[in-house]
Design a protein around this nucleic acid. Sequence first.
DNA 1: GTTTCTATGAGACTCATTCTCATTTAGGGG
DNA 2: CCCCTAAATGAGAATGAGTCTCATAGAAAC
Lengths: 140, 140
Amino acid sequence: MDDIRELKRVLHKENLRYTSQRKAVWDELCSSSDHRDAESIYLALRNSGIRVSRATVYRTIEVLVRHNMVRRLDLGDGRSRYENKLDPKHHDHLICLSCGRIEEFVDPDIEKLQEKVAEKHQFALRKHIHQLFGYCKDCQ
Amino acid sequence: MDDIRELKRVLHKENLRYTSQRKAVWDELCSSSDHRDAESIYLALRNSGIRVSRATVYRTIEVLVRHNMVRRLDLGDGRSRYENKLDPKHHDHLICLSCGRIEEFVDPDIEKLQEKVAEKHQFALRKHIHQLFGYCKDCQ
DNA sequence: GTTTCTATGAGACTCATTCTCATTTAGGGG
DNA sequence: CCCCTAAATGAGAATGAGTCTCATAGAAAC
């Protein structure tokens, strides 16, 4: 991956050091486009022999989220999930209540309507959460 | 409040007993249309002299949510909020990132588009979370 | 290489929520 | 009204995701 450049750029900008652990966490988040929780990232790294602690995984994710390289998702089960956000196309999520499967959707009309709602309420919109919960076609 | 009837009906339907604690939690949730967390409900009841435990507050809310009398909100700060849902008009939320103020919104067009998205993905839609985060007019 | 100052790891800690289990209570007979 | 039994409750222990602490390791500057 050459997205390492992006990581270096961001760390440099904040006067943070480029370390093997920060690289490893970012690589792991780039290696799949899944919705990963912190523990699974921690375990994946440990299992591939990388010496890292949970604290560092959390601390690194924190930095990545702050710099918009990673998006934090809350699926309502008490564990945050993270997805690599370098691929810049915005999307929201459909979540199956039975099997947990996650599908992504984009709807420009909804996006526009959201902006109108915010405007009407005089809110300066920064982000949104839009999640549809139901049963996927295999679970109905 | 005469919504006590609704509580009795639901408890009866599930062969659960009508207790003073369950009544108190439900009353408290009806007494304001706010977005309350479990601790504030617990404290409000204790302060008005009602003998109840945190466990019972949580257990009762669980029943109320299961029976659609209460909606659970997740504002992303690690504490669930609850709102009385007897007043049946559905709404979603605008949340101020600075002062925490919550405004409600309804947009029938968005609701319709959501259904279309679910249909396109062959999901049987059960519920959704739609939250807009930004800065309210006082905080900008 | 030495200095300096940030990053890390291990494990303690926090805090919302859930669980356990001994005790109390609701509610249907008698 | 009282009894009986299963369900509900309270107190506090347990859980689990996430954060904090602090001694040590390692990067960057000199």
